[in-house]
């Protein structure tokens, strides 16, 4: 079984791209897992359209990428039991600190060309750690902006495969389908791990401290000016 992990900001066209993958590789039995925070609508839509096994996980008190890592091992067993050749995991696409991509998985970042030319520079590891950037809605922006947008993606990650598409029509999709088809299957699910480095600081907000100001927090803290990070003992 193959694993594809899709990230990208909300409303960038992730689900439209996933639809094109499912439609474009009909010979491959696909299972789909959506990880979101509060509400998601994709599962019903995809089940209705393709009749594939699909699940949604609401991250609730966990950050969505954290939730993704937690459930991924179970999700691989679930997809395998469903007889899938391909598991597509779609992240909520919120956090610009971490990225949900793992080893032995194809990491896709979906970016909308209409989101502004500086977007690729703001996306951090979501772009830096991906294998492929799919740029959607390229039919709506000028040639100049398209070129500058791609240039910025390359600035963040020069080895990234770039695919321009109007995902609703499916133009340019053939290159993405080829990458998915050629990507190797998981060799050893027991050794899959997150590609990026998780945050250094343990979050005191996560344990319920809501006061503002670094003086009220412990561990790795930050001030407005001066040093980058400070360590404040418990």
């Amino acid at each position: 079984m193959k694993l594809v992990i899709v990230a990208g900001p909300p409303s960038s066209g992730k689900t439209a791209v996933i639809r094109q993958i499912i439609r474009g590789i009909p010979g491959m039995a696909t299972a789909y897992l959506k990880i979101d925070v509060t509400r998601a609508f994709e599962v019903e839509e995809l089940v209705q359209e393709f009749g594939i096994p699909a699940k949604v996980v609401y991250s609730g008190d966990l950050c969505p990428d954290h939730a993704g890592v937690m459930v991924l091992a179970d999700a691989l067993s679930w997809a395998k039991n469903e007889g899938a050749d391909l598991l597509i995991v779609e992240s909520a696409g919120l956090c610009l600190r971490c990225a949900p991509y793992t080893t032995q998985a194809l990491g896709l970042v979906v970016l909308s060309a209409t989101s502004g030319i500086h977007t690729p520079l703001k996306m951090g590891s979501m772009v830096a750690l991906a294998d492929i950037a799919v740029i959607t809605r390229t039919d709506l922006v000028s040639q100049a902006e398209k070129e500058v947008f791609s240039e910025h993606v390359r600035e963040v990650n020069p080895s990234l495969e770039l695919i321009e598409t109007n995902a609703v029509q499916g133009t340019g999709m053939r290159y993405l389908l080829r990458e998915v088809e050629q990507f190797p299957a998981i060799t050893d699910a027991g050794t899959i791990h997150l590609r990026g480095e998780p945050p250094l600081g343990v979050c005191t907000i996560c344990i319920g401290k809501k006061e503002i100001g670094w003086q009220n927090h412990f561990g790795v803290v930050r001030t407005l000016d001066g040093a980058d990070y400070l360590y404040r003992g418990d």
Binding site: G116, D139, V141, E145
Partner: peptide
């Protein structure tokens, strides 16, 4: 096209 815009 008629839909092509400059957004910047």
């Amino acid at each position: 096209t008629q839909n092509t815009r400059c957004l910047t």
